[in-house]
Write a protein that binds this DNA or RNA. Structure first.
Lengths: 100, 100
DNA sequence: GCTAAATATGAATAGTTGTTCATATGTATA
DNA sequence: TATACATATGAACAACTATTCATATTTAGC
């Protein structure tokens, strides 16, 4: 498996972002539908400030994208690749659970 | 996307492990063939001690598995799921590169 | 413009993590 | 058993990160 160093670093940065449970939960919350920040706060059970900090990191890495609508900002997973990859991995984790 | 908290934590722990470039490089080095620790040290350009520390974490998370043969210990990615998932993501990163 | 609602930002901090250095353990061969 | 080789471990530390608290910004409606 050959990969250039900068691509490897880029990839590891994405993994690092997914490597925090709170942030992962935030991403999963808006994986398949748009969600306002407030809704994400409620669903993720994290503070408003923390959610906002994490969303900024996810945004910077293009893992989510925002859409403004009046006072609300809707977030959603950035693209299909992210959606598919994460769904696959979750399914895998859940299948393993069955085997135990 | 519904997922139990402990599964989410488990998943984020895997991502966290992949989230360090040195460790990711180590894993990729033994993704498709068995490699001795020494070979991994050379290929990853990290110190013997550091490689060993990282291998321990990867082992504990069942991302790699060791096989002893005399004085050498061969490591390899633990299973096909890990191999496939990582190969897919690397291909994706490399395709994105082409588009820029 | 003023107020309330929704979201973002900055500073501060406690806890974690990657790395190094020195040393230990295990294994083969002489 | 002594020596060399291969790998693992433990302590120590600097750098980083998640979180909180307080405050700022943006927007809508009055």
């Amino acid at each position: 498996m050959q990969i250039k160093t900068d691509q490897l670093v880029e990839l590891s940065e994405v993994f690092k972002l997914l490597g925090d449970p709170t942030r992962l939960r935030i991403l999963l919350t808006c994986l398949e539908q748009e969600m306002t920040v407030g809704e994400i706060v409620t669903a993720s059970e994290a503070s408003q400030s923390l959610v906002s900090h994490h969303l900024r990191l996810l945004r910077a890495a293009r893992l989510v994208k925002p859409r403004r609508e009046g006072r609300h900002i809707y977030y959603r997973a950035h693209d299909d690749h992210i959606r598919c990859t994460l769904k696959d991995m979750i399914e895998h984790v859940q299948e393993e659970e069955d085997m135990v």
